[in-house]
Simulated assay, not measured.
Amino acid sequence: MLEAFVFATVLCGFFGIILKKNLVMKIISMDVMSTGVIAYYVLIASREGLFTPIVSSSVKNGAYSDPVPQAIILTAIVIGFSIQALMLVGVMKLARDNPTLETNEIEKNNTP
């Protein structure tokens, strides 16, 4: 059930990128899709019965979880944030030259 909600989040973001005409809405849709992909990765990586990889006296030879997926997810979040900021700067530069942020109007204004 949780996988279906995560997959629906990814699809909402994907269709937002395809169907929305406003550039800011496209950026938000990309962020929603990225959040869904990260949530799916966390959902798959989390398993029951695994202990944190901190050695203590209570857990002797238990099954420890791998900390590498957490590092990968943190890296993906930081990279996604920087890409989003870069795209918003690009939209700000486009907004200086164009009265609207609709893709159809921008293409009409910049076609030779």
Rank of each mutant, 00 (worst) to 15 (best):
V59N: 07
I54L: 12
V91Y: 02
D31L: 05
L11N: 05
T100Q: 06
K21W: 07
D31S: 15
L86N: 10
V68G: 01
L101P: 00
V37T: 14
T35H: 02
P99K: 15
I17S: 01
Y40G: 04
L23K: 04
G16S: 09
G62V: 07
P53K: 07
P99V: 05
T35A: 11
A8G: 09
V89Q: 04
A45L: 02
V68N: 03
P99G: 05
V10E: 09
A39F: 12
K60L: 12
D66R: 08
T52N: 08
G49R: 01
G13V: 00
I38T: 08
M30G: 14
M33K: 07
K21G: 10
L74N: 12
A63D: 05
Q84K: 15
M25S: 05
I38N: 06
D66A: 12
V55W: 08
E3Y: 14
K21F: 04
F81T: 10
K21Q: 11
T52M: 11
Y41M: 08
S56V: 04
A76C: 13
F5Y: 13
D31C: 06
Y40I: 02
S34P: 01
A85M: 13
T100F: 04
K108L: 11
S29Q: 01
D31M: 08
I83W: 00
P67D: 06
A71H: 09
V37L: 13
A8M: 14
K26V: 14
V59E: 10
F15H: 07
Y64A: 09
L23W: 01
V59W: 12
K20D: 02
G36P: 01
Y41S: 07
T100V: 08
I106A: 05
E105Y: 13
K26L: 12
